[in-house]
Design a protein around this nucleic acid. Structure first.
Lengths: 223, 223
DNA sequence: GCCAATCAGTGACCTAGTCACACAAGGCGG
DNA sequence: CCGCCTTGTGTGACTAGGTCACTGATTGGC
């Protein structure tokens, strides 16, 4: 059986939980459970609300909005060290969401049952802060999405997305995936990428975009 | 001095607070304050976070997103009997919002200081539910905005908006205001309204839209 | 009655999304 | 290794929506 300190270990991966009251740390570790979920699992979605709040330990969860037309937009990603507060919102769901959360990689997460969540919110000021800050962050993310979609040009948004998601200089994604990411149509992406290529900023392969001139992209993205 | 029952009165205007624990009702009334704010006051916005959570007793608050370009979108409205949870989010602000809340009419609201809010969340399960439900509702609203902007046609959105906001059959709003409402440009509204008029669905005046054929509009809106 | 501010209409032009394709690259069973 | 199927990409024609630069109309204030 692992020592208490070891059990507590994962909590420290959450910035917002570092100052959690010791007593609360015990409750959190004792009454939550570390779970593993394979990539591409739908964690929550229309008609599928989970009964646990998830604190992501490893991997990323993509939260996206689906339209009846089949088009999509990515709203935000939950990365390791963050909580999926919308899960909480789903648990208390006022109405069914049109959004879904998908495991983008294999993930491990601490699952906090609803009752425990309620208990923690009630008894720990630090946990309350953590939860409200997480909400705040997500709402800010949504505001950015709205601003982007409503007011920014596609070429700029695409350039940003490429920079943001191509850590190694090569982005593995099809045009269709990038379109879903930005809430537009595949053809639009194809045309924009063709233009980027013509300008020598990128090279394309089947399912990949390679950055050749990051500065070129960045200059556009910062417009 | 008003009787306790009378002091509690406003609480009952909030559906979500009807089952509040009696002890909590007392705290809420004793430690919150009813305030009045004239129309067009900016309640919160970039660089202006309030230190109270507001429960709206009368009037409406319009929450809108501003772009540097000067364009706007209305995100949602808070009406009497609802709480302005984003106010809370602002209080704990993770980051400055690009959104602002404006009193659309003269309003009266119960202001709950931050400390009291925290206290209530901690001690009352009913109040917690109320708060989380309010968050959930707002997030749902934001999802709808995203869906609308990203995937729906302007003519449909405009028709819906007209129906939604013209209770008496006459809508008092300039083209520019409708454009800000939907996050588009004034010219687009002008052209769409001209088309609606041509079809005999509406009549226009300076700053007004009169519905002539609600069924016509509705048929479009339900597409 | 005049002026300035506000509101609405319009054409030209550009960006974005839709539709209907053609075509190319890999994957795989035979 | 070949044909075939799936998936990914390219393209032209067209519609919808957004921008720009105007004009003209209405109205409230002096």
């Amino acid at each position: 059986m692992p020592a208490i300190a070891e059990q507590h270990d994962w909590i420290d991966r959450f910035e917002g939980l570092s100052r959690l009251e010791p007593r609360i740390r015990d409750v959190l570790t004792a009454r939550s459970q570390v779970i593993r979920v394979p990539a591409n699992t739908v964690i929550f979605g229309p008609g599928k609300s989970p009964d646990n709040m998830l604190l992501l330990l490893d991997g990323t969860v993509r939260v996206q909005q689906l339209a009846e037309s089949g088009r999509e937009v990515v709203l935000y990603r939950v990365t390791a060290g963050e909580s999926c507060v919308l899960t909480t919102a789903c648990m208390l769901a006022y109405e069914d969401y049109a959004a879904e959360g998908v495991a983008e990689t294999d993930i491990t997460a601490a699952a906090i049952p609803r009752a425990v969540f309620d208990d923690l919110v009630s008894t720990s000021k630090e946990f309350r802060n953590f939860v409200f800050r997480a909400y705040s962050r997500r709402i800010t993310d949504l505001f950015h999405v709205i601003e982007d979609i409503a007011f920014r040009r596609m070429d700029i948004r695409l350039a940003q997305k490429i920079i943001e998601r191509a850590d190694t200089g090569v982005l593995k994604a099809t045009h269709a995936q990038l379109a879903a990411e930005l809430g537009t149509a595949r053809e639009v992406i194809s045309r924009q990428l063709a233009e980027f290529q013509r300008r020598g900023w990128i090279a394309q392969g089947r399912g990949t975009v390679e950055i050749l001139d990051c500065d070129g992209l960045r200059k556009l993205a910062e417009t």
